[in-house]
Write a protein that binds this DNA or RNA. Structure first.
Lengths: 216, 216
DNA sequence: TCCAGTCAGTACCGTACGGTACGGTTCGCA
DNA sequence: TGCGAACCGTACCGTACGGTACTGACTGGA
């Protein structure tokens, strides 16, 4: 538990990244029970002693895995130079699909399960970390999108946070939790396109100012 | 794993219910790691042998805990004899507050964490069970409410499932996940009233037919 | 009064995991 | 060539847990 939470730069060497990759693979395949120090060492062809030298602790390894994965799925801030209602709608749908696909990713699901399992334990920090790296990051992307839409006179809302909350809820609903509980994520992934369109249409009926923006 | 999933009746004796209560308390206080067979036996003043006789297995104990808790929080089907827009709105707000408070309950959170932790393991069944007993039950209550609203000409939607999905998303958004990740549920519980009102207002703007129903 | 069933309490066993220590090997560098 | 650092592989230790077996106490019925 010596790793700083505010470590902004990855600071992981090539070898350590490979180890973290192996660890993530192991976690995805077998859940937390399969993520033993001996198992990670064996899968990554390294020694347990090196694991403890690099990450200090098992919790340090878990934190490193979250930080590592978050640094890999960096959300790109897509262009905010659109002005038409159609452009905004398309960007929102794209955001919705990206969000759903990120949440349905097997690594994301495994890490969320891991953090939730550790949440009861005191000093979890993993949950906060996952939220800071995950939700806050992707929420920032949505924030600039919504703000740009409002500046362009296409959206109307008072509190950006509340508007994003509604957008997120319409897109995801309880789907994330159902996937975390074990429902087949691949089966419902085929519906993501339709779901994204539907959620964005509803959101625009709530906060859109353009009259024709609600109907496709 | 011999307990039938479709066990409709509780079928737990007084003594066993007390044991399950102790186990739930233990789970809430210390998380899954505290839920050892020896710990349950000690907390409930019973022997481990009795535990294995009654529940067969540790998984059997977990399943019994979920079933037991679900049987305790039976959702009441509130009256569907309202016709006015105001009545529907009030019932929806009541439903939203109940939903939020159930989800924020410490026992609910602990059981969800438990089921999610077991979800990676094959043959979890706990996640499916939790969903069947939880979401499906409370979803039924919302279903009759929405159908009654539509029959009264107050709501307009094609697919009841989609409408409920939107309602659920607007109410909960990612709040459930954040609580599962360890965010202080007590602190955000003070906002449930406001949140319920806001979500229902948005839902009525989406699916309400009465012109004045959107604004409080 | 005896008997059978139930249950609490406890001791026990096998296993698995986190963490540490040690020998042997490779690699960079002077 | 010699040296030291990093590291792999493995053996080891203490602990904790799931599950089983055994003993003694209590209870209700014949």
């Amino acid at each position: 538990m010596q790793s700083a939470v505010h470590s902004q730069q990855p600071a992981y060497s090539e070898r350590q990244s490979a180890v973290l990759d192996s660890a993530l693979r192991l976690l995805v395949d077998g859940g937390e029970r399969a993520l033993t120090t001996a198992g990670v060492a064996r899968a990554a062809n390294c020694s347990k002693e090196s694991l403890y030298k690099w990450f200090g602790d098992r919790d340090g390894l878990l934190s490193a895995m979250i930080g590592f994965q978050a640094s890999k799925v960096r959300t790109f801030d897509d262009a905010a130079d659109m002005l038409t209602a159609r452009g905004l709608r398309e960007h929102l749908v794209l955001f919705a699909r990206d969000l759903l696909e990120v949440l349905a990713g097997e690594v994301s699901l495994a890490l969320n399960r891991l953090a939730i399992g550790q949440a009861s334990r005191e000093g979890s920090k993993l949950g906060l970390m996952l939220q800071e790296r995950g939700r806050r990051q992707i929420g920032k992307r949505a924030g600039v999108l919504l703000d740009a839409g409002r500046r362009a006179g296409l959206l109307s809302f008072d509190d950006g946070e509340e508007a994003y909350d509604a957008l997120y809820g319409l897109i995801v609903s309880d789907l994330h939790l159902r996937m975390l509980l074990g429902e087949d994520s691949g089966r419902m992934a085929r519906d993501f396109g339709h779901r994204a369109e539907r959620a964005v249409a509803a959101f625009l009926r709530l906060h859109g100012r353009e009259k024709g923006s609600a109907q496709p």
